[in-house]
Design a protein around this nucleic acid. Structure first.
Length: 576
DNA sequence: ATAGCCTTGATC
DNA sequence: GATCAAGGCTAT
C-alpha cells in the first residue's frame, strides 16, 4: 500500500538517511477509494525519507529586501520605532491603524516558510503559499528529480524560488512539508489526518497573537512605552512575533554588563522574559559556578521544593534509552592521556574553566521542568528553549573569559552576535564526542526529544554535514583542548565589522591560535597537519550555523518559535 | 514548469 | 450548508 523510496528510483539519487516522523500507518480516517497504488487517500510515502544535502555556501538574503531592525536605535531610542521591525520580512503588523484585537482572519498575515510569499492556507502539513503548495505537489506526484548546480544551499525567496528546484524542495522538507499528505490515488476533496493538527495550530497561533497583544499593552502601560506615532492608541502595532524585541536587544547589552534590575513586568508567555532570566542569572551567579546561572525556569517559575525534588530525582530519569549520563557524561580533565608535551598555561586554564557537568545538569533540568505535568509539549518550542539556555551559558562563559572580558560591551556584543550559532554547533559536537551526549532523550512525559537537533539548530538535513564534520574531527583526535581553543577562535574574530578595539581581539585571536598550533604539534605529533585541518573545519561549522539561523528565523517570523528569548534577539541582531 | 484559480468532498 | 485542504486546469 505504500510506495516507498526504493520504488521511487527517480528520487533515489538523493541520499537517504534515518528520519522518523510519526508513521502514517495508512488510511485511518481516510476513506478507501480503491485501485491505484493503494487505499483511498493513502499516503504516497508511508515512511518519509530525508533528502540529505551538504551545505557549504552561506545563504544570502535577497539584496532587494530591507532589514530595518536597528539594534543601536533600540538602545538609544526607547520608542524603538527607529528599529523598523515593520520592515523585517515576516514581521507583519497584526493590527492596522485603529483596530484593537487580531480576531479577524486578516490579522494573521503569515509568510511562506519556504519562499516568504503570502500564505494561502495549510498545505501538506503547514501554512505555505499557493506556489510552494503546487511545487511540492508536482514534485512528489511526478517523482521529479532535481539537481543543484551550486552548493545545495541556494537561498530561496519569492523572486528566486524558480532558480533551484532542488534547494526549494529541500527547503520544503526542512520546514516540515509532509510527503505523506500527497495522495497516491490523487483522490480529490475531503480531509486528511492532519486536520486536527491544523486546528490545534490555528488555536495556538491565535492564542499567541492575543498574548503578544497583551504583552505589548502591559509593556506600554508599565514602562512608559510610546509608539512612534506618539502612543495615541492608533499606532501600528509591532508584530506579534517579537513584541519585546526592542527591550530584548537592550537586554543583551544589560546581560553582558551585569545588569541592574529592570522594572519590566513578566511576560504573559509561559517562558520568562530574557530580562527576568538575566536577573535571575545574576542572583545565582553569586553563589554557584558560572554555568549554574542558567536555570531560568527553576528560579522563576518552580517552587523551591519542586526544584530540590527534581534535582534529587534527576539521576533516575535520564535518559531511558541511553547510558546513564551522570557517569559517562564527563571527560577526565584536560588533555588526559594524550598530552606528551607541555600544554600552554592558557589552554590549561581554558579547559579548567569548562564545566560540562553543569551544562548537562542545566539541560536535563530544563527538559524536565518544561515537561513537568504535561502530557505533550511542542518539541520545536522546547528545542528553542534549550538553545536559549545554552546561549545564556555561552554569554556567561564569554563574559568571564580572558581577552573577551577586557572588551567594551559594544565589542562584546558584536563578537557574540557574530559567533553564537557557530559556537552552539561546536558545543554540541563537543558534548557528543567528549561527553557521550546521546542523540535522543526520553522526556519524563514519554515524548522523545531529539538532542541532536540542538546541534543542527533544528534543521534535520544538516545531520549529514554535521556527522561528517564530527567524523573528521574524530580522525583528527579532536579533544577538549582543541574544542575550547576553537571556540575562542570563533568568538575572537577580528574580522567582525565595526569593532572598536580590533587590536585586542586580534591579539587574543593570534595568541589562542598560536597556543593551539603549539598544542597540536606537541601533543599530537602523530596527527599529520592537525592544526591546519582543524582550521579548515571552521567555515564548515559556520555554514551549518548559517543555515540553522535562517531556519530558526523563518520559524520565528511565522510565529512558530518562542518570543522574548535571547535566541530570537540574536537572530534579529545579525539582520540589522 | 510555474502559479493562480477552480473543483471536489470529508468533516464540522 | 460552510469550511478548507486536497487535486485539477490552464494561461503564462
Amino acid at each position: 500500500m505504500l510506495l516507498d523510496m526504493e520504488q521511487h528510483s527517480t528520487l533515489g539519487s538523493l541520499s537517504m538517511s534515518h528520519f522518523s516522523l510519526p508513521s502514517t500507518g495508512g488510511s485511518g480516517d481516510d476513506a478507501a477509494a480503491g485501485g491505484g497504488g493503494g487505499g483511498g487517500n493513502s499516503p504516497l510515502y508511508g515512511s518519509p525519507p530525508l533528502y540529505s544535502i551538504t551545505a557549504s555556501a552561506a545563504p544570502q538574503h535577497s539584496p532587494g529586501i530591507s532589514y530595518g531592525y536597528n539594534l543601536e536605535a533600540c538602545f538609544f531610542s526607547p520608542s524603538g520605532t527607529g528599529g523598523g521591525l515593520e520592515q523585517v520580512p515576516g514581521f507583519q503588523p497584526i493590527l492596522q491603524q485603529g483596530s484593537e484585537l487580531p480576531d479577524t482572519k486578516e490579522g494573521i498575515e503569515e509568510l511562506c516558510p519556504v519562499c516568504g510569499d503570502k500564505v494561502s492556507g495549510y498545505h501538506y502539513g503547514l501554512l505555505t503559499c499557493e506556489s510552494c503548495k503546487g511545487f511540492f505537489k508536482r514534485t512528489v506526484q511526478n517523482k521529479k528529480v532535481y539537481t543543484c548546480v551550486a552548493e545545495r544551499s541556494c537561498h530561496i525567496d519569492k523572486t528566486q524560488r524558480k532558480r533551484c528546484p532542488f534547494c526549494r524542495f529541500q527547503k520544503c522538507l526542512d520546514v516540515g512539508m509532509k510527503l505523506e499528505a500527497v495522495r497516491a490515488d490523487r483522490m480529490r476533496g475531503g480531509r486528511n489526518k492532519f486536520g486536527p493538527m491544523y486546528k490545534r495550530d490555528r488555536a495556538r497561533k491565535l492564542q499567541m497573537i492575543r498574548q503578544r497583544q497583551m504583552a505589548i499593552q502591559t509593556l506600554r502601560n508599565s514602562s512608559g512605552y510610546t509608539s512612534g506615532n506618539g502612543g495615541s492608541g492608533d499606532a501600528v502595532t509591532l508584530s506579534y512575533t517579537s513584541p519585546g524585541s526592542n527591550f530584548g536587544a537592550l537586554q543583551i547589552k544589560q546581560e553582558i554588563q551585569i545588569p541592574q534590575v529592570s522594572s519590566l513586568t513578566s511576560s504573559p508567555d509561559s517562558s520568562p522574559s530574557p530580562i527576568a532570566v538575566a536577573l535571575g542569572q545574576q542572583q545565582q551567579q553569586q553563589q554557584t559556578s558560572m554555568y549554574s546561572a542558567v536555570l531560568p525556569a527553576q528560579q522563576l517559575q518552580i517552587p523551591e521544593q519542586r526544584v530540590t525534588q527534581q534535582v534529587f530525582e534527576q539521576s533516575k530519569l535520564w535518559p531511558t534509552n541511553s547510558p546513564p549520563p551522570q557517569k559517562s557524561f564527563s571527560y577526565e580533565g584536560p588533555s588526559s592521556g594524550n598530552s606528551q608535551g607541555k600544554v600552554s598555561p592558557m589552554i590549561r586554564d581554558f579547559v579548567l574553566a569548562i564545566d560540562d557537568q553543569e551544562w548537562q545538569n542545566s539541560l536535563y533540568n530544563l527538559l524536565q521542568n518544561q515537561t513537568y505535568n504535561q502530557c505533550e509539549v511542542d518539541l520545536f518550542e522546547l528545542m528553542c528553549k534549550v538553545l536559549d539556555q545554552n546561549l545564556f551559558s555561552q554569554v556567561d562563559w564569554a563574559r568571564n573569559s580572558t581577552f573577551f572580558k577586557d572588551l567594551k560591551v559594544d565589542d562584546q556584543m558584536k563578537l557574540l552576535q557574530h559567533s553564537w550559532s557557530d559556537m552552539l554547533v561546536l558545543d554540541h559536537m563537543h558534548h557528543r564526542m567528549h561527553n557521550n551526549l546521546p542523540d535522543e532523550a526520553t522526556l519524563p512525559n514519554g515524548q522523545k526529544f531529539d538532542l541532536l537537533s540542538l546541534g543542527l539548530l533544528g534543521v534535520p538535513s544538516l545531520a549529514e554535514p554535521f556527522t561528517e564534520i564530527s567524523t573528521r574531527l574524530q580522525d583528527l583526535k579532536f579533544d577538549p583542548s582543541d574544542y575550547i581553543s576553537i571556540k575562542f577562535l570563533l568568538l575572537l574574530n577580528p574580522d567582525v565589522r565595526g569593532l572598536m578595539n580590533r587590536k585586542h581581539v586580534q591579539e587574543g585571536h593570534d595568541q589562542v591560535q598560536q597556543a593551539l598550533h603549539d598544542y597540536c604539534l606537541t601533543s599530537y605529533p602523530q596527527v599529520q597537519d592537525k592544526f591546519n585541518k582543524l582550521l579548515t573545519i571552521l567555515p564548515e561549522i559556520h555554514s551549518i550555523a548559517v543555515r540553522g539561523e535562517e531556519h530558526l528565523y523563518m520559524k520565528h517570523c511565522n510565529g512558530g518559535a518562542p518570543t522574548q528569548t535571547l535566541l530570537m534577539e540574536m537572530l534579529h541582531a545579525k539582520r540589522k
